[in-house]
Amino acid sequence: MVEHFSDVMIRARGLRKSFGDLEAVKGIDIEVHKGEAFGFLGPNGAGKSSTMRMIAAVSPASGGELSILGMDPAKDGPAIRARLGVCPQEDTLDVELNVFDNLYIYGRYFGIPRAEVRARAEELLAFVQLTEKRTAKVEDLSGGMKRRLTIARSLINRPDVLLLDEPTTGLDPQARHLLWDRLFRLKQQGVTLVITTHYMDEAEQLADRLVVMDKGVIAAEGSPLELIRQYSTREVAELRFPVGDHDATAEKIADLGERVEVLPDRILVYSDDGEHVLEEVHGRGLRPLATLVRRSTLEDVFLRLTGRTLVD
């Protein structure tokens, strides 16, 4: 397979990060291509944020290779950072500056000329719907507004790669959807997105390709659909029986799906045909209190790969 050099925005080989005795990232290989939305999915402590900080060229790698935009972060940190947009997990806005100055001063850090930064700041305020708040203090903004301002700020240098660390954590549904919409538009403009999240719906919405990280290693890699196909079945039948009956019932229907999972409140049967599972259940004389047939989601993949499963 032949690849164009310029197409690879981020490449890591055996990338490691340790903090004293703790090994947060234990040798991962990744490759992010131009214009792609790449996701890091994983529970807290999986090593996502540590990886992001290394990609942002602020945290030196403890081992392995890392190349960002064809450059070495250990040598060309400032030049790499000049072309990245970083939206950190916490909103670290400059609380001593007002909304507009947060964009203006931040833009100046990139060496962008005054008039140009002013124009871009106005443009970005409109893009994230904060024009009316331009002279407001940062502390007077709502959580969603702060997040939008952080995103606007990360775009001031027109980055080639935008790094988003849990971009919608703590936001209400309206704010999340507005943000997703903005990120989708950026992607259409050709900006490469790298996103970490522990929200499955976010990963499915935004990522073309993702890796599932767990305990510092990559547990799986692929598009959301590929991952679902590989690690789950097309459908899931959820069956609810009276409390206490679940273990006994699960044995009786274990052969109905590729996999059966017993939860405290319901049994999950993983199968390509959920309706058929229900018919069989009824055919065996079992009477669930409630049933639901749904498509498999990334959440099923995630839970299978990172815990709470019968398969160890």
Binding site: F5, R11, G70, A79, R108
Partner: peptide
């Protein structure tokens, strides 16, 4: 296929960065 590292300079001139912190 590892891209050859090309050393590229920071967009900021020496001491421009300190000046920007003063501006802030």
């Amino acid at each position: 296929t590892t891209p050859r590292p090309v050393s590229i300079r920071s967009p900021l001139r020496p001491f421009e960065g300190s000046g920007l912190i003063v501006l802030r």
